[in-house]
């Protein structure tokens, strides 16, 4: 009987496929959040495994902050096309223009501004479920989240009042206006994601591999220098995210470990230029993935507060 045994990646894979098929069967209008980042790349492979030879029975949705790495956008569009999927993109800029979101003068990160855009897209397309690539090992508030995370009519997560989730029996029932966020990768770690990318031979955006880039030092991190602002009459979208004269600049060999947008992503100095190198680098890493995310450093409860407001 010993050959009937799953290793850890096979176990995580079958669990995630089961979750995805539950979504397809239990919801009327699900969407899959796809950013082009490493976690959502794994999700697409899992969706293929769950639904082929049929089409993946849901569109892809991405909420752009407007500060994306161009490599990521290119990769996202290409991958959606390869898979024959419908890709829906909604942007913070558009939401600001339509008055759905208001930029704060003191906050350069548009992380929070993604919330009303996401909720707007859910309303516009009447999505009853969004599949996301969040993992519990990323962050303390995420560690408390269910696979099927219930959101009320305002998109809010109430951590003290979550539905108990027992065995693999997911309660997908909703009333009109309510919404579910589903996280098939809940039990995956950063290492699992890269080992899976290696096993499945998945391609990832080039910025995950080492490359030369001009960066500047801020808050103990190397941040990428944003693209130049063209004088087009609009305010600089990267205002506040450009290096100040006293901030050190350097050309470095770097890569990203986790991708938010250009404003919130710290570059790490690395020579890893293959998936094998990355796996080895993570095995030896002494800081967590989110240690390079500026958006989580603002306070101990930064993620909890965003999630309560309707974040991914």
């Amino acid at each position: 009987m010993n050959s009937y045994h799953l290793d850890h990646l096979q176990y995580l894979e079958t669990e995630a496929i089961h979750v995805m098929r539950e979504v397809a069967a239990e919801f009327e209008r699900p969407a899959l959040l796809f950013s082009g980042g490493k976690d959502s790349i794994c999700m697409l492979r899992l969706a293929e495994k769950a639904f082929r030879p049929a089409d993946i029975p849901m569109p892809f949705l991405n909420i752009e902050t407007g500060h994306e790495f161009p490599e990521l956008i290119e990769f996202r569009d290409r991958r959606a096309k390869e898979l024959g999927a419908k890709l829906i993109v909604r942007t913070v800029d558009d939401a600001i223009a339509r008055g759905l979101a208001t930029a704060s003068a003191s906050e350069t990160s548009r992380n929070r501004l993604q919330i009303p855009v996401l909720l707007g897209a859910i309303e516009e397309f009447r999505f009853d479920c969004c599949i996301g690539g969040a993992r519990r090992d990323e962050e303390k508030a995420r560690a408390k989240e269910r696979f099927f995370s219930f959101r009320d009519g305002f998109g809010q997560w109430d951590p003290k009042n979550q539905r108990p989730e027992i065995w693999n029996l997911y309660n997908a029932r909703l009333s009109p206006g309510e919404n579910m966020r589903v996280f098939p990768l809940s039990n995956w770690t950063e290492m699992d994601v890269w080992e899976y990318i290696r096993r499945e031979k998945l391609s990832v955006p080039s910025i995950y591999f080492s490359h030369e880039r001009e960066c500047f030092r801020r808050g103990g991190q190397w941040l990428p220098i944003p693209p130049p602002h063209s004088e087009n009459g609009h305010p600089d979208p990267y205002a506040g995210a450009r290096p100040k004269p006293n901030e050190k600049r350097a050309n470095l060999i770097v890569r990203v470990r986790t991708i938010a947008d250009m404003i919130s992503t710290g570059m790490i100095e690395s020579r890893a230029d293959s998936v094998d190198d990355i796996v080895a680098e993570i095995a030896a890493a002494r800081v967590t993935e989110r240690g390079t995310r500026a958006d989580d450093k603002s306070s101990e409860a930064a993620m909890e507060d965003r999630k309560k407001a309707g974040y991914f």
Binding site: D137, E139, K140, K144
Partner: peptide, 28 residues
Amino acid sequence: LTDGLRAEREQGITIDVAYRYFATPKRK
């Protein structure tokens, strides 16, 4: 490390199931 919610840290208690992940060379 595991008490991730604001109310948990304030009250020094664990409210909800928190999931943690670690590995040794033998197992995950």
